[in-house]
């Protein structure tokens, strides 16, 4: 029984970690898919979400539901503002300029947070309603279960949005050929901003779930999280939505597995090793297709 319980809880851990990476990786992959930008500031949106939770819960002492909604809304708004202020003026600039700007935005957010909140970790009061639930004699982490559920639901909603709605179709059209999309009557700029909003909302959901599991906020917390999610997106094939989820699960499970066999100091190394292997064997990632340069 102990063996079973161990396996079940480790699988759940893998799913939980993979889910959080997936929520962040989806934003990476969507923005890359539409404007070929690796938005290095994306991970820092999680950090902003964590600080919003801290402010609302620890400083203002408001209801957790309010805190969660404000965190997601705040992240969405931040993503839109970043796009409008930093990236939109560079729509016709070379890709490298936008990439460097993204790195700049990332530093700006991290150092801005440090300036405002200080470098030490802020502890966010626990806001999960219960810690575990019993299923058939097994005690399962509530936070892990809710994380997996919310991520699955978010992925389904996102897939529906992209595949079936008018805006989603416009996003796909813009991602394939901006000029042609414009000729159809699509406002390309707004479509790109909308993509940032959706990606950032998912990061906001990721922030809530992450802080539920690891209840603190630090200025640089988005860095490693963002990097891992970036690895996940590349593993799955950057630009691909199912790829981001599969890649994230691979990263999450690798980390949990490496820790479970007692090699937890190697967990980050294993993730990057995985990336190196995939880049050598299949440079476009698992679901990636070879893209021809746009003219």
């Amino acid at each position: 029984m102990d063996g079973v319980a161990l396996i079940v809880s480790q699988v759940l851990n893998g799913l939980q970690l993979g889910s959080i990476y997936a929520l962040v990786a989806l934003g990476y992959t969507m923005v890359y898919g539409i404007i070929l930008l690796l938005n290095f500031a994306h991970g820092d949106i999680i950090m902003a979400g964590a600080y919003i939770l801290w402010i609302v819960l620890a400083q203002l002492g408001l209801n957790p539901v309010v805190a969660m909604l404000l965190a997601v809304a705040g992240c969405t708004l931040l993503g839109v503002v970043i796009d409008k202020v930093a990236y939109a003026p560079l729509r016709n600039a070379p890709r490298l300029s936008v990439l460097i700007t993204a790195i700049g935005v990332s530093y700006f957010l991290e150092n801005g947070a440090q300036l405002i909140f200080g470098a030490d970790a802020k502890v966010v009061p626990s806001f999960a309603p219960v810690s575990s639930i019993q299923v058939g004699g097994l005690s399962l982490s509530f936070v892990a279960l809710i994380t997996v559920l919310v991520t699955a639901l978010s992925t389904v909603v996102l897939t529906f949005l992209v595949q079936k709605t008018k805006l989603g179709k416009a996003m796909r059209a813009v991602s394939e050929d901006m000029g042609a999309a414009r000729l159809m009557g699509v406002n390309v700029n707004n479509t790109i901003t909308f993509t940032f909003a959706v990606g950032s909302a998912l990061a906001g959901i990721g922030a809530v779930l992450y802080v539920m599991a690891y209840p603190q906020a630090t200025p640089t917390m988005g860095m490693m999280l963002g990097t891992k999610a970036f690895v996940a997106a590349v593993l799955g094939g950057i630009g691909s939505i199912p790829g981001a989820v599969v890649g994230a699960m691979l990263v999450g499970f690798s980390e949990v597995f490496v820790s479970a066999i007692g090699l937890s100091v190697w967990r980050d190394a294993v993730v990057f090793l995985l990336l190196i292997i995939v880049l050598i064997v299949r440079p476009t990632g698992i679901f990636g297709r070879t893209m021809s340069e746009k003219v």
């Binding site: 179709k169 416009a170 796909r172 059209a173 394939e176 050929d177 000029g179 042609a180 999309a181 159809m184 699509v186």
Partner: peptide, 14 residues
């Protein structure tokens, strides 16, 4: 410049 990854019907919808 059709949208090669979208279906014929979706292209027309666009």
């Amino acid at each position: 410049r059709v949208f090669t990854q979208m279906s014929v019907a979706e292209n027309l919808e666009m």
